[in-house]
Design a protein around this nucleic acid. Structure first.
Lengths: 135, 135
DNA sequence: CTTGAGCTTCCAGTCACTGGAAGCTTTATA
DNA sequence: TATAAAGCTTCCAGTGACTGGAAGCTCAAG
């Protein structure tokens, strides 16, 4: 299988697959013409990576998970630990974004958005502490 | 005011302030010793930047917002438009993260996490489509 | 035989910093 | 006065995870 085919099947750009090889996540063989020759197992790995990345795992997490995936003697606790840590990070990010969102939504709704220059959004930004000026 | 002082006041690392100068967001004067000399207006700008960045605005958005901040003849509609676009991006990110979170939480709770190797997380990841295998 | 698709490598750019080295200036202390 | 410590300077390189583009080789079709 050539790179174009596996890219299609795994749902990853060719560039990304070459990058994954560069950082040692996959090691396809090479034909005499220099083309990468992907085995079924390479395709499985790439599919695995595509899915793990879609769930937001970092490349290093992916490396760990791939290692566990290939290790028949793994303990599922190790996998769960990685996933739980990632879940906690996601929750933290969601929290940060929701906090930003709340402030921003408040500011947007306070701004009349017409042709006049006065704007509570700019007023807020220029006040180090933030938060709409009270009354 | 030297960089250390304004960094403290604005709540930004010195490195970041130098970077902001490099990309033209602030233009402090220089003393004969080569040190940056920040005026009050520079400090205001940096404070503005710190707050805008904390709300997740990109550097380019910050550049635009700073321009509007300094333009006494601005229309508040322009500011509101930038903020609304950013708000929409935040909502999109939150949505993506929540979707990841849901899948991941499901997988984590399905994994018993002990010393045995079988693990629904890995099973899911290895199946291109994802989603817990039905029964 | 040529055209076009597909593959190769290598280099540079993204975003917003961040770390570190080497060296100057200023301030505090012995 | 010597010296040490703190603060400032520039420059270079690295982060994460790709992405774009150029130059050039290989392969399949007409």
């Amino acid at each position: 299988m050539n790179i174009g085919y596996v890219a299609e099947r795994a749902g990853l750009p060719q560039k990304t697959i070459r990058y994954y090889e560069e950082i040692g996540l996959v090691r396809p063989q090479r034909g005499i013409n220099g083309y990468r020759q992907f085995a079924e197992s390479d395709l499985h790995k790439l599919t695995f990576l595509a899915r793990a990345r879609a769930l937001g795992f970092s490349i290093e997490d992916c490396r760990t998970l791939l290692g566990l995936y290939e290790d028949a003697g793994r303990e599922s606790a190790a996998v769960k630990a990685v996933a739980e840590e990632h879940l906690a990070e996601i929750d933290q990010k969601i929290g940060q974004l929701q906090s930003m969102r709340a402030t921003l939504a408040e500011l947007v709704s306070a701004c009349h958005g017409d042709d006049r220059p006065d704007c509570p959004i700019l007023t807020d930004l220029s006040q180090s502490g933030g938060k709409l000026t009270r009354s």
